[in-house]
Structure formats: C-alpha cells, structure tokens
Amino acid sequence: MEDPKNHLSRSVVNLWLVAGGLVALIATAVLVVAIVVFELPLWVPLAGATLAFALAIVVPPLRYRRWRYEIRSDDLYFSRGALWLVRTLVPFDRIQYVETRQGPLDRSFGLHQLVVYTGAGRAGTIPGLESDEAQKLRDELSRVAGAVSL
C-alpha cells in the first residue's frame, strides 16, 4: 500500500516542539522535586531532563515526516506514527460528520485539527492543517459524507 500524498503544514513541527518542550519542562520540574524529597543523586534529574528534551526535539520532525493524508476517489486515507505506524481508511459513505477544532496552541500557530466521525465513533483526527486547507477538507468531506446513514 502506498503512503497518502499530502503532508501537514510545516508549522505543525513548531507546534509539536513547543508542546513537547512544555511536557519536558514539567517532567524536569517533577524530577527536581523528586530529588529534593527522596535525596536522589544529581545525575538522575540531569539524565531525565536530557532524555525528555532530546525526545521533545527528535520526535516532532519524525512525526511530521510520517504524517500523511489524502482524499482519494472513495475514501479518506491517513497514516501516522513514528514507532507505531497506523493507517486509517474511512470510506466516504461511512462518514457521519466532520468537524474542525482549534485549541489554544493551534490558535497561536494558526492551525486547525480535523476530526472525522463514522457510525462507530471517532475514526481519527488530522492535526496541523492551515485554515484554508482545513476548511476545504471539511467542506469536501461534508459534501461526500453519509450517503448511507446508520
């Protein structure tokens, strides 16, 4: 099976970097508290923080490279995952509805998420879409959705 064609917006990498950085910061803070409480040696938080920040820097570009989506003739096809590869296929006639979302981080980068629902619940979320692209996708999918209703 071929990979889907389209990449997400480039700026989603920055979004993930910021989000990952925040998580790494929190992890470091927890570790610092832990050494004070449990009197652990200093290398523990240093190693932990290094690992957390390394992951926060390495993972986003990898994720970006792997995240693909495509509207094909009869279905929506997207694939993702750095370690766990997941490919999802949603036929148009099974789509119940589509929505776009924008969290606080998304807003600061001008990005949108697209959530697709079928009769079985949420089929998947495509993050990191530019406004135009998100709107185009939403309208296109809403148009073709639900030829068969549950």
Partner: peptide
Amino acid sequence: QHLALSRGPVQRAFDLASLRIGVP
C-alpha cells in the same frame, strides 16, 4: 465503518500488522 491498520516496532520486525475494525 472504518479500518485502522497499525504496526508496532516489534510487529514491523516480524512483518505483522493489527487491524482495528470500526463497529459501533
């Protein structure tokens, strides 16, 4: 309703895949 095919690191080494089947 929909299908998701996933492959973890060990699964990839053994050329395996799991399918999640979307059913209400």
